[in-house]
Design a protein around this nucleic acid. Structure first.
Lengths: 193, 193
DNA sequence: AGATTACTAGACGACTGGTCAGTTATACGC
DNA sequence: GCGTATAACTGACCAGTCGTCTAGTAATCT
């Protein structure tokens, strides 16, 4: 009957992600977490030393998954400009109204938890820096292969694009409508040329 | 000894704004609100029928103040491009690390409360639409007076800029650092020309 | 069998948003 | 001026939930 070590811990993390995505960090209580995961309440503190460490782990997990997804998307063949475009098309698709999962935790949890815990803030900072780094790398490749005209330094342009799409996600969330992504897409095209 | 009608209500709203800005909606309990405002707990429910209505009022208040500030900034003399620039310079200044007040509630509370209450979501939606509207109007004036070259329709460009700065605020919050605003400023300049 | 690790039940005190009977202040009729 | 009706306001209290902890059981290893 014994589960492999840490499998339960992972299960809690997996199950809870969509809970957090929908309701936020503070609004989701431990009781809800353990019920959803089908884990006894008392066990929670065996796997996590506090709710904060739990949130920390959740964010860590999220970024590592997200970054590996980004890496596969940005490291395919073809012109860098096209790869970049397909990444942001994926962004628009996944953040659209419907799907419950895969939502951007940076937008949803970032503002809430970064003031609650310095630890979580640092995870968010490191994660977003990494994402911008991947975008910057792809832009630099675009400069090299000629698919993206030079003009703005890759890291700066990358941060601009990320900001733009973060803001678009926020507006899409507030409006329950994917239209802001069209706006972001067109602005991005202008920034790239 | 009697206070003018609704003065206490207003006082609660005023005092609480910075609390919410720093800790978030769910994380701030009624007890903290009433203590900070120096108002008896029981009175809270005389002025507000629920915490949700209170949050609703807080956001309403925020947008009305913010919009009037934007209006005075965007309705001065001079070329529209300059007025626009001064608005976003104010944005960068006010959202910078130091000042406790005047923080953008759209970034801080938006993602958290829009899933908690449809009412609050609609206030946020209406408010952000209004802000974008003011920016769009200024851009249109810029098209007319020649200070902003034509190329992108004013409403679309306005939404792009707002997205960009919203995202910059989020990154600035996560990094406790105003650098993202420089990035946004330079991206904005490219979008405007 | 004994030692060690893996896991869990349940209760802890503090605190949550919310209620309402009761008190205090104002307004009005005489 | 006084009595009374009405509005303005309040604090003790509610049921429920919060995150946390500890004493304990169950499983595994030596």
């Amino acid at each position: 009957m014994k589960k492999p070590a840490q499998e339960t811990r992972q299960h809690i993390l997996d199950i809870t992600k969509s809970l957090m995505t929908n309701k936020g960090y503070t609004a989701v209580g431990l009781a809800e977490v353990v019920t959803a995961a089908g884990v006894p309440k008392g066990s929670f503190y065996y796997y996590f030393k506090s709710k904060e460490e739990f949130g920390h782990a959740l964010l860590d997990e999220y970024f590592s998954e997200y970054l590996s997804k980004v890496d596969t998307m940005l490291n395919t063949d073809g012109p860098a400009a096209e790869r970049l475009l397909s990444y942001f098309r994926y962004w628009a698709d996944s953040q659209g109204t419907d799907l419950p999962d895969d939502k951007c935790l940076v937008v949803k949890l970032g503002p809430e938890v970064c003031d609650l815990s310095e630890d979580m803030r640092l995870v968010l900072k490191k994660g977003t820096d990494a994402i911008i780094g991947r975008i910057a790398k792809c832009i630099a490749q675009g400069h090299a292969d000629g698919s993206i005209p030079a003009g703005t330094e890759a890291p700066v342009l990358a941060e601009s694009l990320y900001q733009l799409w973060l803001g678009a996600s926020l507006l899409a969330k507030l409006g329950k409508d994917g239209a802001p992504f069209d706006t972001a897409l067109s602005a991005m095209e202008r920034l790239l040329h």
